[in-house]
Design a protein around this nucleic acid. Structure first.
Lengths: 235, 235
DNA sequence: CTCGATAGTGTACCATAGACACTAAGAAAG
DNA sequence: CTTTCTTAGTGTCTATGGTACACTATCGAG
């Protein structure tokens, strides 16, 4: 976008535009999903892209990411972490745009994701069946996926993808999907329970056509206490 | 800095300024060192700060970091990696400035660091005896230190801080300084040699007043080969 | 030749990761 | 009510790797 006649902001030196883009992950029955938005403007009109937008001058980068997420997908109060900043020269065909990429983790059951806001079309895609993406968003998404895969094993962020109360089977399934390999049930349970960061509840799952499993809850306090004592989470 | 009358670049919406800052690490006899630059302009005139500067419109972020490093410290061709992007509202008292922070690793022996360039005063400081820093640079430096401590154990980046040929004692010392704990000599050597990513040379160290140690070299090719086979570096 | 300093080497124990298979519980169907 | 189907839930053994630990070899300096 060229400076228009009514352009009000003037600087001595040229400045790149600054945006944020967010890779939102969620877990469905058997896949890791990503939220994408169909563009209604050129360039890449009609193509799918990551939610995101310009950083305002009166908000931090984190705030910008949260605001865009809220505006474009309705998601609020979810796990959000900065990923990497992309500044290649021709990322955007219009002009120089530097984008600070974030990734976010959502529990699908707990959040009503608006399928469409801002007159845009938003939808979930499996990370294994992605459409062509606008800009360099395929790169960003791949980096976010890589980061999630690496981080989930050493920090208890996987819980962000599950409802507050979950079964150990759900937790194991989460790791199997993200790490893309099968885990041994007995070893997995042994390891998780031995860390003492999940709390047994007195509830069991409902509406299943077989023996119901016990529900657990992630114990943030216990995790922090253990971490201070030198404990290192690992799966 | 307010827009001056001669400001030539106009935009419809306000844009933050975009800079890069670099935390350059090196290893001296017994400390991890950081390169700092004494500011010769307000704000924070006279105070120490990280090397860095504005991102030009015709260069990528990595290029900007390399250029600033070269201009301000004379360093070239060194290990450089993006760290995090800082965008708090009042980082800079003049106006909104977003900075993409990098960290770099240098081998002190192999590089002549110009003590002073750009009419600025550059110097090495031990990470344990830092002066007050300008802006939020103390934060950035702490984050870089943390990243280095975490990363050095799982990726063979420590070698970047050593000369091409080094003794196992030097390598062990590097880890002891960065991780801030003593390591067992026999176990360390066993582990390093068993990974088969360091190559024995037929040289030994010189000018030492005791038995001279054998020199080794990091074998990048072997490392890549092993990595493809699923090997994971760890110290 | 002796002293001082660092190089260089092997073993034993313990803890943890991973392989592996059966019984228990509950819903659904006949 | 009995059978069937499906998932919950549980323990042991082995292999591997981490860690603790002490002495001899080599070389330069005096």
């Amino acid at each position: 976008m060229r400076s228009k006649p009514e352009a009000k902001f003037q600087y001595e030196y040229a400045r790149p535009a600054l945006t944020v883009d967010i890779v939102v992950f969620a877990l469905d029955a058997d896949d890791l999903m990503v939220m994408l938005i169909q563009r209604d403007l050129e360039p890449f009109e009609g193509q799918w892209a990551l939610p995101g937008g310009f950083v305002h001058l009166d908000e931090t980068l984190d705030d910008a990411a949260r605001r865009e997420l809220q505006e474009e997908t309705g998601l609020q109060g979810i796990f959000l972490e900065q990923l990497y900043t992309y500044g290649d020269l021709n990322r955007d065909p219009r002009e120089r745009v530097v984008t600070v990429a974030y990734y976010a983790l959502v529990n699908l059951e707990g959040h009503n994701v608006q399928a469409s806001t801002d007159a845009r079309n938003a939808a979930w895609f499996s990370v294994n069946e992605l459409p062509d993406l606008a800009f360099d968003h395929a790169n960003i998404l791949a980096a976010a996926h890589e980061r999630l895969r690496g981080k989930v094993r050493y920090q208890p962020i996987g819980f962000e993808l599950l409802p507050e109360k979950f079964t150990l089977r759900q937790l194991q399934h989460l790791y199997e999907v993200i790490l893309d390999r099968e885990l041994d049930k007995r070893n997995f349970r042994k390891k998780v329970l031995s860390m003492e960061i999940v709390q047994e509840t007195d509830e069991i799952e409902k509406d299943v056509a077989h023996r119901a499993a016990r529900l657990y809850r992630f114990d943030q306090k216990a995790y922090e206490r253990l971490t201070e004592q030198g404990f290192h989470f690992e799966i």
